[in-house]
């Protein structure tokens, strides 16, 4: 599928800031399921690309003159391919390291209780069956509802609330996978035809031996298709966040995000 993407983030500051610095994980990964035809990032005064430990392309964006707003615009064309939600293990990232707990994906007693039965499914019917059953059960248990959580809400509290958005679903799924002994990681990216998504999307990838990374999007009850574009992977949102930054001064902020992902002819 050939996708035309444009994504604009505007931070309006209540007071002027004297300096700001951000990490932007807003460049499609080099993966077997996607190829970037063109891609432009603009807005910040200075932008410099680097590669983080997870192989994500990151731009360090710095502003050193007084500013009362920050605008980040990305746009480009990406061609995707349907891999039935499976990516082979060839990105150099050892799966086992994703078994480590992070503050956002810590397992609570509640999550452990929810996930444990799927360990039996895993033993009886295999990894894939267990992961699909887990995704369905999670989608049933957690209502997709914005306004109850933030990007830094830990899986445990989102699970207790019973409501959340795609980040929460991804975090809960990662925590649940750890309970049944499967490494699982966070993916941030874009989704074409998303239902009501105005921001970037997030889902999860679990590692299945002999197969590779298998994607699960509990918020949409499906594995990734060619409607998905991968930007970054990591153990959780904090490591794969599309935009994360700090500034000196600036008071409060208002953020507005506009994402458009459209299929275009080749």
């Amino acid at each position: 599928m050939r996708l035309q993407i444009s994504h604009e983030t505007v931070y309006s500051l209540t007071q002027a800031a004297s300096r700001s610095i951000q990490y932007l994980r807003l460049t499609p990964r080099v993966d077997r399921c996607q190829r970037t035809e063109s891609w432009v990032i603009e807005g910040p005064e200075r932008l410099r690309p680097w590669t983080d430990g997870y192989g994500n392309t990151v731009h360090v964006a710095s502003e050193s003159t007084t500013h009362d707003s920050l605008v980040i615009r990305v746009s480009g064309v990406v061609t995707t391919r349907d891999t039935a939600g499976v990516l082979p293990l060839d990105d150099g990232l050892p799966p086992d390291m994703f078994l480590r707990e992070t503050p956002l994906t810590a397992v609570s007693a509640e999550i452990a209780g929810f996930a444990r039965p799927f360990a039996d499914t895993r033993a009886a019917e295999g990894d894939i069956a267990a992961l699909h059953a887990l995704m369905t059960a999670q989608a049933d248990a957690i209502a997709f509802e914005a306004g109850h959580t933030s990007v830094f809400t830990p899986a445990a509290s989102a699970f207790s609330t019973g409501k959340g958005v795609c980040q929460d679903h991804a975090h809960i799924f990662i925590a649940a996978c750890r309970v049944i002994g499967l490494p699982c990681r966070y993916v941030s990216g874009y989704l074409a035809f998303g239902s009501g998504d105005v921001a970037t999307h997030a889902w999860a990838e679990a590692f299945v031996a002999d197969l590779g990374w298998v994607s699960f999007d509990p918020a949409n009850r499906q594995s990734a298709t060619d409607a998905y574009v991968r930007l970054a992977v990591g153990p959780d949102y904090a490591a794969a966040a599309p935009v994360i930054g700090v500034r000196t001064g600036g008071g409060g902020e208002e953020v507005s995000v506009a994402v458009q992902v459209e299929q275009v002819q080749s």
């Binding site: 590669t51 430990g53 997870y54 192989g55 150099g92 990232l93 050892p94 086992d96 480590r100």
Partner: peptide
């Protein structure tokens, strides 16, 4: 790999 002291942030550097 599952050790908290291991820092994937350093991979490939």
């Amino acid at each position: 790999l599952t050790n908290d002291a291991f820092r994937p942030e350093m991979l490939g550097l």
